[in-house]
Design a protein around this nucleic acid. Structure first.
Length: 436
RNA sequence: GGCCCUAUCGUCUAACGGUUAGGACACAUGCUUUUCAAGCAUGGAACCCGGGUUCGAUUCCCGGUAGGGUCACCA
């Protein structure tokens, strides 16, 4: 039996974290089993649907890499009213449903109610084990606003059946919907799919995650410069774990390791700090070229002139990288490095005359370096700095080269700007020192 | 409130009757190219409570408590 899962969002809001996680689990399970995941839009509520939301969901799914190449398989329930009408009629004819008076305004329209057999429904949930409900409380629930206007539960059951869905993997907020759906499945004589209700994603206060808790839309994370592979990695680890101690996974690795048996039963708090950490891990695994290429979208600076390897180490997201660049962290690459002369002594723990003496010596040492890379530069300067006091030598040097209180170390900066520029900046620092 | 689900460090989690209860994030301290990060090392930090079952319960059962979900002519 080929596994078929589905992700059925309703386009009534932006693509959010919870939806993404549901989609991911469906994707991973199908991929692991060599099956397929379908995407359909549940847009039977014409009042609340928006094309904008549909596009947002699609864009998010593509970004996360959860959509196959063939997007022609995506459809909308609103296009299948004829199909649902057929099944609604069938239910009425077989006595499983009946038309009834609408409660409000529309006297000419007849709603359709499912005739509740008042029984006990039990299903084996793949993550929770057996779950059962007495269906009395449901009464004769409504399955369509009219024969031509199906409601969610009816459409779900029909579509899952017609598209051969074998596993229904969804949030646990659907757990009590399952009884209605099973009742209809039995009324229609369909084969029951396997159910797996996954735990919800919670806000830090353990309540249901919503807009008031900050960023919940997937595209917001994209805009902040998160990597889709990191986002997917993090989401997978919320409520599931592979058993080992590996934490950084690619989507392929996740699919290989995934199993519903290892999905948790309890809700998990979404922790941005850990997401940030994971994103950094994935960033560091990118080559400099890949990183630079992606970074382009987040900064106006010329990324080909930026020390990408340094940025990658330091920034957890492209958003943070852009901030760093904007803050002037890498301005030492250009010639515009103005600074207050006092800064040369701020962390040096020495006086102007001594600092000047050290800088002169450093310039001399620098002149002797033939291979001007950071290792060589360090090899030449470090013994002197150690002897004379690292703070007294290295701090003025670093400020002379960077013009800033915080920066990468002086050896790296020197190697990046080149010998000539380094010499020039030391000269300029020397003249600053003479004014103090 | 009815029904349903859940319960290990602050957070994500491992453990499937016997462990000094492990890891990761975060936090603290130290080290390092005595700046900021990163990195490395170290540290503090958890089995919700009460009964059973058992030679032995974090683990199994029951009850309590707490939290969550759901009770639409929404999905």
């Amino acid at each position: 039996m080929t596994v078929v899962t589905r992700f059925p969002p309703s386009p009534t809001g932006y693509f959010h974290i919870g939806g993404a996680r549901t989609a991911l689990f469906n994707y991973l399970f199908a991929a692991h089993e060599g099956g397929a995941m379908h995407l359909r839009f549940e847009d039977t509520d014409t009042e609340r649907n928006k094309k904008e939301y549909e596009d947002d969901i699609l864009a998010g799914m593509r970004w996360l890499g959860l959509l196959g190449k063939d997007e022609s398989a995506i459809w909308r329930q609103s296009e299948r009213i004829d199909v649902y009408r057929g099944y609604i009629k069938k239910l009425i004819e077989s006595g499983h449903a009946y038309e009834a008076e609408a409660a409000t305004d529309n006297p000419d329209k007849k709603i359709v109610r499912f005739k509740n057999p008042n029984t006990t429904v039990t299903f084996d949930d793949l993550v929770r084990g057996p779950v059962s409900f007495k269906t009395e409380e449901l009464k004769d629930f409504i399955i369509a606003r009219s024969v031509d206007d199906p409601l969610y539960h009816l459409a779900v059951v029909v579509d899952d059946h017609e598209t051969g869905v074998t596993h229904v993997i969804r949030g646990e907020d659907h757990i009590s919907n399952t009884q209605r759906q099973i009742l209809m499945i039995e009324g229609l004589g369909f084969k029951r799919p396997v159910y797996a209700h996954i735990p919800l994603i919670l806000a830090p206060d353990r309540s249901k995650l919503s807009k008031r808790h900050g960023a919940v839309s997937v595209n917001e994370y994209r805009r902040q410069g998160f990597l889709p592979q990191a986002f997917v990695n993090y989401l997978a680890l919320l409520g599931w774990n592979p058993g080992g101690e590996q934490e950084v996974f690619t989507l392929e690795e996740l699919a290989r390791a995934f199993s519903l048996e290892r999905v948790h039963k309890s809700g998990a708090v979404f922790d941005t700090e850990k997401l940030l950490w994971l994103n950094h891990e994935h960033s560091k695994r990118l080559t400099d070229a890949q990183y630079a290429d992606l970074l382009k979208e987040f900064t106006d600076a010329d990324v080909t002139r930026l020390p990408v390897a340094l940025i990658k180490e330091r920034a957890r997201t492209f958003g943070e990288a852009a901030e760093l660049i904007k803050s002037g962290e890498y301005d030492f690459l250009s010639e515009k490095i103005g600074y207050e002369p006092h800064l040369l002594l701020k962390g040096a723990k020495t006086d102007a005359a001594t600092a000047a003496k050290h800088l002169k010596k450093v310039a001399e040492l620098l002149g002797s370096v033939s291979e001007f890379n950071s290792d060589e530069i360090k090899r030449v300067i470090f013994p002197y700095a150690t002897e004379e006091g690292r703070g007294a030598v290295l701090w003025p040097l670093r400020v002379a080269l960077s013009g800033r209180e915080k920066s990468p170390d002086p050896f790296i900066i020197a190697s990046l700007i080149g010998k000539e520029a380094a010499m020039r900046r030391i000269d300029s620092a020397l003249s600053h020192l003479s004014t103090l």
